[in-house]
Design a protein around this nucleic acid. Structure first.
Length: 875
RNA sequence: GGAGGCAUAGCUCAGUUGGUUAGAGCGCUCGCUUCACAUGCGAGAGGUCGUAGGUUCGAGUCCUACUGUCUCUACCA
């Protein structure tokens, strides 16, 4: 077939994806004759479309999956989406707002109908985007956190945890978002520093002239104060403990209590205690049996407990009014500027209010312990290793997990309350009769579960848990979990303890973390900055392979990277390079018989490129195994561009266009062999272009994606031969170098003379030298004197090359060039001598290194002598 | 407050258990209509590897301190 001159991904990417799908290549079968290899997708939220972070996720995972599939594993990439409870609900509320509707207007059923419609629309879009990326996911197993299977797992887990006493319901301080009107987990709160104030307040002691000064950053909460605490060791307040204070504005009498929580050094050493609105105060309240008075409604306005003067006011308006009123009654001592970290909702960014509320919690301590152990005992390994420390840090200090959300979109909590007898029924299946009193007056808990509750089960819920399915048995535990380090706590940690608790096995063996893809200036991509990049637009312009290779190359695990257009462009150029190299091979192979490598006689150049290929196979395989995809990709880039294109293809031309039929046959065999293998090595990274070319190669059949990944073959390593051939390459480089230095155009043919011990190697590669260096003929000499013409010369490791250029050679410039070279060599000699004169080095360093150093020294000394001779000959 | 990352060429970054002459892309300079590719070819310039110590025969790589920078985490009223 005729290949286009330039790489045009649009002409084949969609077609090939369709072909792969139709042939069912992505489907992973439960096949006892194969070893399973499983990765579950970090399920994208159905809130919108994919961004570059997803593109990176999926490139890494798809590369690993394709690599393993080619290596003969039953490789499963399990795709799916996350319902993203709060994030999606926020979106739908926004959408309804544009129609002038609220949740309450439409009711729960209609709201959920809209949510499912949203899911169908955006979930479908995400799948299409993943396909554009070339992801080889098993779409027959496409999952959704709220589908029947995952929902069943959620109920199973909830009930089991409840029965084990690991889920409880209680009044605790939680993070409340007054805008989303729901509780949030600790992980869902983002802190940022806001400029604020410390308000110092004076609370008078009852029936006395004494008073206590307390400071607060949230003055409106003083309406709910039920005590003031001091440190029991604090001499200043010793006499006041047990006395009563009169709360300004409110008039409530509150006790002074002693509690270790109070830091004597900080502020006045006295703390106002508001158990309903502060987590620490809540604990103090429990210890001292204090009343819990909530002064705020769920929407952030003040409630009746706040008193008539403030009831109904927004929390921030109330704050201003209260400060004014305190000032008026003389209770405000001073206002001090204070930079304060304020919590914000991670979805809507409203200021979060710590509020006491009745919520469902998961008891974390018993779950955290085995989850820590699993990593300590290396049942799960983090790459990079350092993230295990971050994981420990979080797991060890973990608090109970608030899992109930006052939302509608999500897994409704499987708990029913009997209106007749008050019984609480926790059940895996829907309940309509009270098992205690037989009454029918049952009401299901209104709340839904934290979205991460279901994602925590993802590696096994998607495989069929709690049923004992063949999939679960075969593909679980999964092998690698790859995602950004920003969701270690939200997701990775929770999957680990959930997997261990519910399946008795770790959910995966390796955690591969990648960094954040930032913009060109190193900023995080965000909607507010408008600096987000749509992967689809990049694919449209440059092709999926270019994007994939750009995302993966030059990036180390766990490190942030920057997206830049110029990088994608560079990789598109690389794709074009691959394309054209292949075009060259295919064009030359047209109508020719392609022999297997074993059927032809290999030249030195042939052995060299085969040798380079073998080391590339070794390096790629090794680094894929270590998750060093960036290094593997780099090795391929260099091999393909520098070794194969710049050198071997050029070398092959003299054989291809020459008269010797045997040599031509040999070159064709090698070209096809090397290209085929290189394409296979590249395929996990750039699936489309490699498939398109592979199917057009004369020596292949079928699809590259189900072909065998190349294996290192020591018989083809040709180490000695390759090394020897590099001597020929050095000669070519030397001639080019000389030509450039005397401003001789590359195309102008020159005569070449060589002084060398290895004339056979040079004469057998004469054609290559003449072609690549632009040489008209090669002669052998012992010294420059024999040439009888002015020459420019260069010394290589094995020989000296002379190029007679007559008047073109500027004697002074040539001398200077040789002197500079001599100086460089002299530096090397000094370095090597220094090492070898060091007794410690000679005695302690590995023998091979010492030997290598000796050989180097010898070589450099020889080179120096030759250069000096050249300099002498010139003068 | 606690923890971690990063600091290597003008820019963006690699550098895998310490061991060739520290690499790449982009940019820059010079030269090329060489029969796959100008999305290209050839030849170059450019780095005291943040600072100061230490370990070692040997440090970009390991240790300590410092400086700068980014991030996570906690949330002291």
């Amino acid at each position: 077939m005729e290949m286009q001159k330039t790489y045009d991904p649009k002409s084949f990417e969609d077609r090939l994806y369709k072909e792969w799908t139709e042939k069912n290549y992505f489907r992973a079968e439960v096949d006892p004759s194969k070893i399973p290899f499983t990765i579950v997708i970090p399920p994208p939220n159905i809130t919108g479309q994919l961004h570059l972070g997803h593109a990176l996720d999926n490139t890494i995972i798809d590369a690993l999956i394709r690599f393993k599939r080619m290596q003969g594993y039953s490789a499963l990439y399990l795709p799916g989406c996350d319902h993203a409870s709060i994030a999606t609900e926020v979106k739908i509320v926004e959408e309804m707002k544009r129609e002038g509707l609220t949740k309450q207007d439409v009711g729960r059923d209609e709201f959920l109908r809209r949510a499912w419609a949203w899911k169908d629309k955006y979930g479908g879009r995400i799948v299409e985007q993943l396909k554009k990326m070339g992801v080889s996911a098993d779409w027959s197993r496409l999952a959704f956190t709220m589908d029947e299977r995952c929902s069943k797992a959620v109920r199973e887990v909830f009930v089991n945890l409840y029965e084990k006493g690991l889920i409880y319901r209680g009044d605790r301080i939680i993070n409340w978002c007054p805008s989303c009107k729901t509780a949030l987990s600790d992980a869902e709160v983002e802190y940022s520093e806001d400029a604020s104030f410390f308000w110092h307040l004076k609370y008078p002691v009852k029936d006395s002239d004494e008073f206590i000064i307390v400071a607060t950053t949230r003055p409106e909460t003083m309406l709910g104060d039920t005590a003031v605490a001091v440190n029991p060791k604090d001499k200043r307040y010793e006499h006041m403990v047990g006395k009563t204070l009169v709360l300004p504005l409110v008039g409530r009498e509150i006790p002074i209590v002693a509690d270790d929580y109070v830091d004597m050094e900080f502020g006045s050493g006295a703390v106002k205690i508001t158990p309903a609105h502060d987590p620490n105060d809540f604990e103090v309240g429990l210890r001292h049996n204090l009343e819990v008075i909530r002064v705020m409604n769920d929407d952030g306005t003040m409630n009746a407990n706040a008193g008539k003067a403030y009831e109904g006011m927004d929390r921030f308006a109330a704050r201003e009014k209260i400060v004014e009123d305190l000032k008026a009654c003389g209770a405000l001592v001073k206002i001090e500027p204070h930079a304060h970290n304020v919590g914000h909702c991670y979805r809507c960014h409203s200021t979060v209010e710590p509020i006491v509320s009745k919520q469902w919690f998961v008891k974390m301590a018993p779950l955290a312990k085995p989850a820590i152990d699993a990593v300590v005992r290396n049942k799960i390994h983090f790459t990079p290793e350092r993230f295990s420390k971050i994981y420990y840090n979080w797991m060890e200090g973990i608090k109970d997990w608030c899992i109930s959300r006052q939302l509608w979109w999500g897994h409704r909590i499987p708990v029913w309350y009997c209106g007749d007898c008050g019984e609480t029924i926790v059940s895996k299946t829907d309940v309509d009769t009270c098992p205690h009193c037989g009454g029918k007056n049952l009401k299901q808990d209104e709340d839904v579960l934290d979205t991460w509750f279901s994602s925590a089960l993802w590696p096994f819920s998607t495989l069929g848990y709690p049923e004992k399915t063949a999939d679960l048995d075969y593909f679980y535990p999964t092998d690698v979990l790859s995602c950004g380090y920003d969701i270690i706590f939200f997701w990775v940690a929770r999957m680990i303890f959930s997997g261990i608790e519910h399946t008795g096995k770790v959910p995966f063996r390796d955690v591969l973390l990648h960094g954040i893809v930032r913009d060109e200036q190193g900023r995080k991509m965000s909607k507010s900055l408008g600096n987000g990049i749509d992967p689809l637009e990049v694919i449209d312009e440059y092709g999926a392979d270019s994007l994939r290779f750009a995302l993966i190359s030059g990036v180390a695990p766990g490190n942030d990277s920057r997206y830049s257009r110029s990088k994608v462009e560079a990789m598109r150029n690389f794709m074009n390079k691959i394309w054209n190299a292949s075009r060259f091979v295919i064009m030359n192979a047209e109508g020719e018989e392609i022999c297997a490598l074993g059927e032809v006689k290999l030249t030195a150049a042939d052995k060299w490129i085969v040798s380079r290929l073998e080391s590339c196979i070794k390096e790629v395989t090794l680094n894929m195994g270590k998750f060093e995809l960036g290094i593997a990709a780099g090795a391929l880039y260099d091999f393909m561009w520098s070794d194969f294109c710049d050198w071997y293809i050029e070398l092959s031309k003299s054989a291809l266009y020459g008269e010797d039929a045997g040599k031509k046959k040999g070159a064709l065999a090698v070209l096809c062999f090397v290209l085929e293998n290189a394409l296979k090595l590249l395929h996990p990274f750039v699936p489309f272009i490699t498939e398109e070319i592979y199917q057009n190669l004369p020596n292949t059949s079928g699809s590259i994606m189900i072909s065998d990944f190349p294996r290192y073959n020591s018989k083809l390593a040709y180490k000695k031969e390759a090394k020897a051939f590099e001597g020929v390459m050095d000669i070519i480089k030397a001639v080019r170098n000389i030509k450039t230095s005397v401003n001789c155009p590359p195309s102008k043919k020159v005569k070449l003379f060589v002084a060398s011990q290895n004339r056979r190697l040079i004469s057998s590669n004469a054609a290559a030298i003449m072609k690549l260096a632009g040489v008209s003929g090669i002669g052998f000499v012992e010294s420059a004197a024999e040439i009888g013409e002015r020459t420019a010369s260069q010394v290589t490791e094995g020989c000296t090359v002379f190029v007679p250029l007559g008047e073109l050679v500027d004697l002074e410039k040539e001398k200077a060039r040789l002197a500079a070279e001599s100086e460089r060599i002299q530096g090397e000699i000094a370095r090597a001598e220094g090492k070898l004169h060091n007794r410690g080095f000679v005695e302690k360093a590995p023998k091979n290194l010492v030997e290598a150093e000796r050989a180097k020294l010898e070589k450099f000394i020889e080179m120096r002598e030759k250069i000096e001779k050249q300099i002498k000959d010139l003068s």
